[in-house]
């Protein structure tokens, strides 16, 4: 019975996200759309806390969960209320980074679980490993990138590019992919340490991905990272067979990607130009 209520909670959550996004894209209904999505989110979260069970076992550690929820709510509300109107985009970037970090932390904990199983001779499930790695990599890149975007909009960090940076980025990315693919397929017992290598490389990739991009292009980058976090959340949905995480994450992932392209169109520039523009910009600037 309780599980059925949870299913209904998740259904409400998914539907409100869709309706909320739809209403957010029309000026007159936008504010209500935001509130509707927020209500759906609250229902899904409360449903999870009180009704979720796995193999007949309910969730524990309520004190910890509520303490964390209260800390997050208080800090989040204060930060969001106090921020100046002009500083809104950097606030969005900061919150986006938090979401990415959250997804990455989930992957780390779940990997630790799985790693214990492997060490004690249990079978590895490459599908689950794939999801964990994907969540880790995308979430971490989104976190690191968002932090840089936030600092750039703040004016704390200047544009930073050097020759061959794009090639270095590509190499790092290739190493991340190859290493993860090897770990997923082989189920190597050394995965415990190599996993953290992937984690660190993802942070580095995220930093150098955003660093060279010009400050004026930051909104586009934030939108792109936003859709990354959405995808990371969706991988979490796969991990826990959780439909609301899946639909919410994928919706943001696809809508965010389209939004990124629309924003580029509004600026009359192709996305590729924004992402590697700094390189061309720097060299053409030097030429002129």
């Amino acid at each position: 019975m309780e599980l059925n209520i949870l299913i209904i909670c998740y259904l409400i959550g998914s539907v409100t996200f869709i309706i909320g996004l739809k209403m957010l894209s029309h000026p007159e209904s936008a504010r209500r759309g935001n509130l509707i999505a927020a209500a759906g989110m609250a229902i899904s979260i409360l449903g999870t806390i009180f009704l979720y069970e796995e193999g007949g076992v309910k969730l524990g550690n309520y004190i910890w969960i509520f303490a964390a929820l209260i800390i997050g709510t208080v800090l989040g509300t204060i930060a969001a209320k106090k921020v100046k109107m002009t500083a809104m985009p950097e606030m969005v970037s900061l919150f986006n980074g938090m979401g990415g970090a959250c997804a990455a932390l989930i992957s780390i904990v779940e990997f630790d679980h799985l790693n214990h199983q492997i060490q004690s001779g249990g079978a590895t499930d490459s599908g689950t490993l794939l999801i964990i790695f994907a969540g880790l990599i995308i979430g971490t890149i989104s976190f690191a990138g968002s932090m840089i975007a936030w600092a750039k909009l703040n004016g704390r960090i200047k544009d930073f590019a050097f020759n061959g940076q794009h090639i270095m980025n590509l190499v790092i990315f290739a190493v991340i992919i190859c290493l993860s693919a090897y770990l997923i397929i082989s189920g190597d017992p050394a995965a415990g340490t190599l996993f953290y290598v992937v984690f660190v490389l993802s942070i580095i990739y995220g930093l150098f991905f955003v660093l060279p991009i010009g400050g004026a292009d930051m909104p586009v980058v934030i939108s792109l990272l936003n859709s990354f976090t959405g995808v990371a959340a969706a991988f979490g949905g796969f991990l826990y067979d959780n439909p609301v995480m899946l639909t919410g994450g994928i919706l943001v992932g696809s809508a965010g990607t389209i939004l990124t392209i629309l924003m580029c169109k509004a600026m009359n520039r192709p996305l590729s130009n924004v992402l590697i523009g700094s390189f061309g910009g720097a060299s053409s600037g030097a030429a002129s």
């Binding site: 959550g13 996200f17 909320g20 996004l21 957010l24 936008a30 759309g33 935001n34 999505a37 927020a38 989110m41 899904s44 969005v92 919150f95 986006n96 979401g99 959250c102 997804a103 989930i106 936003n226 859709s227 976090t229 959405g230 990371a232 959340a233 979490g236 949905g237 609301v244 995480m245 919410g248 994450g249 919706l251 943001v252 992932g253 809508a255 965010g256 939004l259």
Partner: peptide, 9 residues
């Protein structure tokens, strides 16, 4: 808004 929604994570 989309940023808030991916907070489902």
């Amino acid at each position: 808004g989309a940023n808030a929604i991916h907070g489902v994570v």
